[in-house]
Design a protein around this nucleic acid. Sequence first.
DNA 1: CATCAGGGCCCTG
DNA 2: CAGGGCCCTGAT
Length: 319
Amino acid sequence: MKLKHKTSLTFYPTPPFHFDATLHKPSHFPSSDNAWKKGKYCITMRWQNQKLGLKLENKGTTIKPKVLITIYSKEKLTKDFILTLKPELEWRFNLKTELADFFNQFKNDRVLKSIFKKWKGSRPVSANSLYETLVIYVVLQNATVRRSVQMLENLFKKYGSKLEFDRQKLSCFWTPQELDKVPERDLRRLKVGYRAKFLKRISKQFAKGEINEFAMRKMTNQQIENEVLKLYGIGPASVEYLLFEDFYRYDAFSTIPPWDQKILSRLLFNKKLVPVSKILKYAKHWGKYKKLAVHYLWEDLFWQRKNKKIEWLEKEIRL
DNA sequence: CATCAGGGCCCTG
DNA sequence: CAGGGCCCTGAT
């Protein structure tokens, strides 16, 4: 499907804003619904039954941020449509968060100091909808990176669609309603294994409107947790990622899945394996920004990996 | 060829 | 609250 209509919106994120470190997370596995290069990020999106292509371009600096978002669509967009889309884009790309306090408070922090020099102004983004994010978490479970990528791409091929805009083709997610109707054995043919049941059940719960992502944004961490754990196939590890990555709860750092534990042990203590309790204790000095601080460390590590081989990390990343 | 663990989660006892 | 089973893959 070709998206020929263009609508442009200009945004002025709260400074400091680091365009590339915000929109590209090198620790995430690649997915054909988005593409990044320096100063430019594209992703597909669904909004009010329309499929859209988004292009974000960096038109400012970290101190004086300016982002141009071009929205590609099949039909010309109405004023009302754009009116509701605009705040959603601000939310999804976390353009309005206030982090000056965080940078100020930890400008001399042992580990953050040097990382701020490179990435100050980075922030989490939930560029996908809640449903889409949950699909990603399900294919992440108990699988190596290669297999996660394969599962998601199989799903895109069978149930998603391709959107053509800005001279590229990117995958667009299906709707929960569409996947709800699919027989479980069809899903299993896509080699998603026992996750087929999870995907079906989650899709059904969304299709029935049991989950209201917009209401959840206003809830407390605990309320969000209760809400999300109602979803079949979503457990503590997924919740931990979700609170930070999708709901921007910078303080939500209470459980550490085994893989994360290994990597944080190295990063913080230069040891192979440190007890979870010790890592959590150490993170306490970052106060209400403890998860955000960990995010900075984490992504910095994976940015480093782009340029040079990190021997111990390669061993932990199972392809 | 067989066996096993992997960015979990559910369910049972 | 500990532990087995679940799907599929690639490593050994």
